[in-house]
Simulated assay, not measured.
Amino acid sequence: MKLTGREKSELFFEGVVTVILLLLLNLSIVVLINSAIAHNPGLQSGIFQIKRSIKIGPTNYQLWSYENLFIALMLVADGFVLYWRLIRRYKQMQLRHIISELHYIAAGHFDHRIGFSLTGDTQRVVESVNALVDSAIHSMDEEREIERSKDALITNVSHDIRTPLTSIIGYLGLIENKQYQSEEDLLKYSHIAYLKATQMKSLVEDLFEYTKVRQTDTPLAISRLNLTAMMEQLAASFELEAKKKGMQIEVESGAESLFIEADAEKLGRVFNNLIANAFKYGAGAKHIFLQAEQRGSEVIIHVANDGQRIPADSLGRLFERFYRVEESRSKATGGSGLGLAIAQSIVQHHGGYIYAQSDDELTSFVIHLPIKHGQQLVKTAANRAN
């Protein structure tokens, strides 16, 4: 930390004043001691005997002048006092600089940090202040991001609800004003309104589910779950829909059953969303593969299909709310755009993580879940890019 010219002068003046005060104090003490000794013959005799008995060094040097010894001791004490006062004043100047820096940051210069290096506790104060400012700025950025996220959520929900709602009002208006030519037209208009209302209901349910699973304090109904049996049940429940789409669901989990501690209902929602996602967007797919394997203290699950490849630049955004890959994920499919975001939130709530991989052969959603509830898995370096 560099001192200003005024501070250097202040420090010099402090030193000069301290030296003057110490000299006056020393002179006063010497005068008082000499006066006391001069008026007390017994004290003079005692001091003389002490001086004769004290010998210093190999030459047996005797102290004949106690004033010299006293002055030497006083100079040492004066040096400590002078050093202490100058250091104390210097630390006060350091604190003034720190306070000045804080006022500068508080004035709106949030990218500024206290840059000078000090020693001891003062340096820890500087580091703590910088860390506190970083934490505050990070919190402010997170708050802004949350606000932007809320605004985007409201905008997207409003847009996605307004589109089918406009159609519903339009067709119901035709029915209300009897602007139809036949009963067939009436049934057509009411059917379209019903489909649009169903689409709105699906969006609202997905939005409710998304906001619910995003709340980290929402408790999980943890139980010991047979993952193998669960995947087989899911495959059976989707078998009819798969046949209608000309697809086949295959389950691979090894000879032995896999057990994990998880919320069966919410984990089932993850599988439902991923399988439904494959039905809607796996253009040209003939198979959906459900695979699970245990690796150490975690279970790795693959939900894959052999449909159209997802572009590499879209893989990292698949789990964003309302994100749809161009062309293959148009709103014509009727999806809310929240299914993968819901799946990611549920997996993270279980202490795991999920990512997507896609090539010309398979598009896979890979889930890593801890076997024991309460563990937190860390995404490995090999998967950070996904």
Rank of each mutant, 00 (worst) to 15 (best):
K8T: 00
L11H: 10
F13E: 02
V19I: 15
L27S: 14
I29T: 00
V30H: 04
I33T: 06
S35P: 03
I37S: 07
P41R: 05
R52F: 12
S53Q: 05
I56G: 09
T59P: 00
T59K: 13
N60V: 06
L63P: 12
S65M: 12
E67K: 09
F70W: 09
L73H: 08
F80D: 09
V81E: 07
I87S: 05
E101M: 07
I105V: 15
A107Q: 12
G108P: 01
F116C: 03
G120H: 11
V125C: 04
E127F: 03
V129P: 09
N130R: 08
A131Y: 09
L132D: 07
D134I: 10
S135K: 14
S135P: 00
A136I: 06
R144F: 15
A152K: 02
H159L: 08
H159P: 01
T163N: 10
I168G: 04
I168C: 04
Y171C: 11
G173L: 06
L174S: 12
Y180Q: 05
Q181A: 09
L186E: 08
L187N: 07
A193W: 06
Y194A: 12
L203A: 00
Q215L: 10
D217K: 03
P219C: 06
L225W: 05
L227Q: 07
L227C: 10
Q233R: 08
Q233I: 09
E239D: 12
L240E: 12
K243V: 11
K245H: 11
G246S: 07
M247A: 04
Q248R: 12
E252D: 06
A255G: 04
S257D: 15
L258S: 10
L267N: 02
R269Y: 04
R269T: 01
V270N: 01
F271E: 02
A276G: 13
A278E: 07
S297E: 14
S297L: 13
E298C: 11
I301G: 08
H302L: 14
A304S: 15
D313K: 09
L318W: 15
R321H: 10
Y323F: 15
S330D: 05
G337E: 00
L338G: 08
A341C: 11
I342Q: 00
A343L: 02
A343T: 01
V347H: 08
G351K: 03
Q357W: 05
Q357E: 08
I367R: 13
I367P: 09
L369V: 02
P370A: 12
H373C: 01
Q375L: 12
